[in-house]
């Protein structure tokens, strides 16, 4: 089997008393589009900085295609990165910046770069000083995608893009996937994650909470059920996996987590006239995850 694009073992980062990342074990197989989610301050950017060797782990280790992440001369031949805040040399124009990054980076597909410049509609003649947040992000995205590197590490790459550009971004990710490239995408745009990611990991307060495909997450999480009855409404309060029960005359609403059999058995025993089941949106799933700490 091919080496995973990213592998970490007990990766830990401490900033003084603050444990920013706590023993992360993660493996992202080559060719996957992997979403990395979590509330603000969860440790996502910290993980990425460790993967890129920009910060040193307090404990543990990370590998990029089986190369130690600390060996940046080798590891960085295999990846391209878009930071959350893109800072460019203010006096260089977009074209000059792309030229510099192509010359010092892992390589460049010039034809594809020109195509991306067109698609992202970026004026390369302007000095970076005059670029808006979105335009700086476009420069970094074009530089990253045009490397055709086997691994793309993207930290909130679309936070400054308008919806049209966001669409172009999704196309570029899809093209990368078709190429067999791996994408490690950290984002707060759940619709985007849902649209492009094969699997997602959820990080909270430095710990990995869950890694799953999007449909799996759905299954694992609260399905909303509404049932209507001709006769008396059954009591569901003590069933496993059933929460948030609200009863009205002749109907009940509740959320269901885990295997549905016990709840369905209870419903079937009553005089059920209608049943509607709604899967949660990804957003609801994450509100669940993110909110757990405060509940």
């Amino acid at each position: 089997m091919a080496a995973p694009a990213i592998r970490t073992h007990q990766l830990t980062k401490r900033y003084g008393a603050l444990l920013a990342l706590d023993g992360l074990d993660l493996s992202v197989p080559a060719g996957e589009v992997f979403g990395f989610l979590g509330p603000n301050g969860a440790g996502k950017s910290t993980t990425i900085r460790l993967l890129l060797g920009l910060a040193r782990p307090t404990a543990g280790q990370a590998w990029i295609f089986d190369t130690d992440a600390a060996d940046v001369a080798t590891a960085h031949r295999l990846l391209a990165y878009v930071p959350a805040d893109v800072a460019l040399w203010p006096q260089l124009t977009g074209a000059e910046t792309l030229g510099l990054l192509a010359a010092t980076g892992p390589g460049v597909d010039r034809a594809y770069r020109d195509e991306l410049v067109d698609r992202f509609d970026l004026d390369l003649s302007k000095p970076a000083r005059t670029y808006s947040t979105g335009n700086r992000q476009k420069v970094a995205l074009i530089a990253a995608f045009s490397t055709r590197a086997p691994l793309l590490v993207l930290d909130e790459p679309t936070s400054g893009l308008d919806p049209l550009m966001e669409l172009q971004f999704r196309r570029a990710v899809a093209a990368a996937r078709d190429n067999g490239q791996t994408v490690f995408l950290c984002s707060h745009q759940l619709a985007e994650v849902e649209a492009v990611c094969d699997r997602v990991a959820i990080l909270r307060a430095g710990r990995l909470v869950d890694v799953a495909t999007v449909p799996e997450l759905r299954r694992l999480h609260r399905t909303e059920v509404a049932a209507h009855f001709a006769g008396p409404v059954p009591d569901l309060h003590n069933l496993v996996g059933v929460d948030n029960v609200t009863q009205a005359s002749g109907s009940v609403r509740f959320t269901l987590t885990g295997p549905p059999a016990p709840a369905l058995a209870a419903l079937a025993a009553a005089d059920l006239t209608a049943l509607s089941v709604r899967e949660p949106s990804l957003e609801e799933i994450f509100l669940d995850y993110y909110g757990e700490a405060t509940r």
């Binding site: 960085h76 930071p83 530089a143």
Partner: peptide, 13 residues
């Protein structure tokens, strides 16, 4: 100011 980050994300030690 973060200007080195993109350079150091390349194979530049």
């Amino acid at each position: 100011s973060g200007r080195l980050t993109l350079l150091l994300a390349g194979p530049v030690t």
